[in-house]
Amino acid sequence: MLDEQLVQRIKAGDNAAFTTLIENNQGKVYSVAYGLVRNSEDAMDISQETFLRAWDKIATWRGEASLSTWLCRIASNLSLDMLRKQKRVVLVREIVFAPGEVQRGPDADILSAEQKAELENAVAQLPEEYRHLVILRHAGAMSYRDMATTLGLSLSQVKNRLLRARQMLKRSLTGRVD
């Protein structure tokens, strides 16, 4: 179903349409929230709040970005707000997930468990501003413009930092990712 049709149905009070919206986007929204706040419970709260905000503000969606991008933008804003409030210092050892804490997406089996852990560690060790960009781009599929708006950066800063972040990740993972 097209985003426009889905929004029209939600505006008309169709609960099934809103359920579809959640089901289609919960993985992406949760991934962005988890990638930024690094805590499963906080990420769940943010994911729920994201969809509640979406329900509240669905009339403001103008179709300039896809619904999933719009939702990821809400999730990332909520996550960054939470980080600002908590001023949380994330220790590297917190990034190594407890077994069973995190469920991967359907395609995640392409990577071995070892590769996943190494990737997580490599992402976790990036400087915060680089890590946020990697999460927003690769977990949230956000555009440069959306990332720039969300993080308060210029387009060239986004471009350069993302390039550098990926170079750092590649260096960190050299010989580990095929």
């Binding site: 089901e23 949760y30 769940m44 729920q48 991967r104 395609d107 990697v134 977990a139």
Partner: peptide, 20 residues
Amino acid sequence: RTLATGLQLLPPRDIVEPVL
């Protein structure tokens, strides 16, 4: 592809019911 698959997660619990 590695990044996308490695960073895409599923929520540990259902989100639909509590949100509705």
